[in-house]
Design a protein around this nucleic acid. Sequence first.
DNA 1: CAGTGAGCGAGCTTCCGCTTGACTT
Length: 885
Amino acid sequence: MSTLVIVESPTKARTIRKYLPNDYQVEASMGHIRDLPQSASEIPAAVKKEKWSQLGVNVEADFEPIYVVPKDKKKVVKTLKDALKNATELVLATDEDREGESISWHLLQVLKPKVPTKRMVFHEITEEAIQNALHHCRDLNEQLVHAQETRRILDRLVGYTLSPLLWKKIAPKLSAGRVQSVAVRLIVMRERERRAFRMGSYWDLKAHLSKDNTPFDAKLISVDGTKVATGSDFDENTGQIKAGRNVQLLNEADANALKERLLGKPWNVSNFEERQNRRKPAPPFTTSTLQQEANRKLRLSARDTMRVAQSLYENGYITYMRTDSVHLSEQAIAAARECVTQMYGPDYLSPQPRQYATKSKGAQEAHEAIRPAGNRFRTPRETGLKDRELALYDLIWKRTVASQMAEVRQTSLSVDLSVENALFRANGKRIDFPGFFRAYVEGSDDPDAALENREAILPALAVGDRPDCQDIEAVGHETQPPARFTEASLVKTLESEGIGRPSTYASIIGTIIDRGYAQMQNNALVPSFTAFAVCSLLENYFPDLVDLHFTAKMEATLDRISTGDVEWIPYLREFYSGDKGLDTQVRQQEDQIEPTEAKTIVLENLPVNVRIGKFGPYLETEKDGETITASIPQNLTPSDLDSEQVEVLLRQKTEGPDKLGMHPETGEPIYILIGSYGPYVQLGEVSDENPKPKRASLPKGQTPETITLETAVGLLSLPRLLGVHPESGNKIQAGLGRFGPYIVHKKGGEDGKDDYRSIRASSEDDVLTIPLERALEMLAEPKRGRGRRGSKKKPMRELGDHPTDKEPLNIYDGPYGPYIKYKRKNISIPDGDSAEELTLERAVELIAAKSSSRKTSTAKRKTTSKKTSTAKRKTTSKKTSNSDS
DNA sequence: CAGTGAGCGAGCTTCCGCTTGACTT
């Protein structure tokens, strides 16, 4: 007699196990166990001949989906089937949202239980909640399942009909989708705005004043009652003052003249305003807000944030990390309030427990907000966590605790000061009661806004006061183009539009980067030329699908499907086969979309065309009846491409490369060229005798404009001999490699390997001038490795040495939880054991078990590496011969 | 590592959302 309970995740399985009777067995489905075939290899042979097989959906027969169990889920299904054999009852306890309901339905379809089956849902993992849920089981909600199928099928239809169109018209392997294409479009639209942006400049005055020895600053507001122009008065597209603004624009001369006129004149306080306001703390974290804050405050990518959060979750530090809910359980609120009282005192507690309402579109709220786990929150210090885990936990702890703290009370002050016919203003801010600021201040994408939280002290001033003026400064300003999207601001926008789900925000960014639609530059997402081409095609021919509101409209329909107000198959039929349906449109538009046109990117104010070619983007133009093409270097983005850049690239192509000068010794010419990997110098010309002339990339920081003949000669003479190592007597050289400048001790390392050290761009050292002494110094230091901070990670626990070979055994904390490291092997700690209590004996056992099972290790794995051409990896042998014996 | 952009042409590429796994640098 036993009951089998199935949930999504192993961690959840472990926790609810505690609250269930002994004869209950809990297993995890690991998310969805069935899906539409992902690629051609998964399409069942029976339907392979059908026209629609590539879609995985029979669009000719009521959109019947072909579901398959993907390879990596076969094992899970087998485990579940085995478990079911011993069960007298099945309880499906997946999340209560659309996807969760669907997972349960697929489980039923695949497991075909012969025993009674119930559906159970709970929102909190407490004994009470689980007991309660167990006694209030219900049936599967078929309408909700249909809503999920509709979502799944619609996404498939969009993705798998538009992507092939892009392969035909623009380039192979591109992709389009309901979510990613809107994300790309947001980035492209912002870049267009940036391209269209025209800078405006203006001047104003800043006065340094003081009253009773307290200094303060004031800014010029108006002269003769007319407002002085500031940034917001400018039109972004012209760089001029917006039409109809009654302002006066000061240039440098105006500002200086005014300054001279006002210096030494008496100042007078003409107005004084004080305004009190209050601020509430931000709600506890959801996936989206956690990713935003971790990106802003810890500079973590969305993906890294999730990895660290997963580890915190699995080790019981935080609640589930994929959620769109800001809801806190009663226990959590009590725990947060307890923390406030303990750490900050009762004055800092919000008078009433604060509960926030989720307002993002399409939220499904199957979980709580992300918060410290348990009924008593461990302080960050108590956890014993380190590095990123500590930093992220700290962030979550503070945000949760702050949400139950008192409001901030502050006073804003605005003081007007007259001098002659000019009016200045000083703004101040006083924090009367810091409230939740004591624990947490929300980050911002806008550096100016971050300053807003700071206090700005003003002396006590009253109308009629006459402060002293020490100095007046004329300050020049330039208007800024709209900022590019960061991961944080993109996730924020997507979430507020209801696009994407907590489990996908991180991967959306991954997808658009993998497809070459965007690249990351200084934490900003910069779209590629391909992104421009794809985006334009979609906007021109499928505007509805890339509309920002498409997902929200779809969600509204899905909701109606789940309540039974709309039928799912007619909706899909209309969407795909209707007069304005997707399939109909693709058929009609296909002939009209000219590939040449689709590959061409229209960039305003450019005298040439940019086209997407087999080897990346290139310029194309006509000159004297001939077509000239020129590659665009990889790291040159649409925003960098102005007519000046175009001219350089084309001139290089038509007139040959720029000659930097002659080599002082050989007399050969040295050229400066731009290739797809950026600028480089070349000695001599390509000819039959000399098919591969000596070349060298310009090191970081050098541009074709700044490089001198001397540097070029130096670069071309690399690698350079510095001298010999005093101990080994071997050569020490400095050179320029694929990863930048380096020094090397030839055959100097242990086991006869060359010993390399990178010359860091941030250091004072230069490959061309670095002396032997400095090189020896660098070689004496250990390699820095590729790790984030320092080379060696500190173990979480040291277990001691292995009894047979005395090699150390340590426990480390990895992205997927703690693991044992022994020699070069990593063994994760199984469910039954804990990292804190594991003994040396047990570890040795686990290692032995691992070595024997590894003999039949997977033969090959799909390579997921992107662009290996530029980053060839040494393939390390996977044989475990040293430990198998 | 490198200066191309058309052509042979089988079979494949691709979506979104749920979840963890096994892997070195």
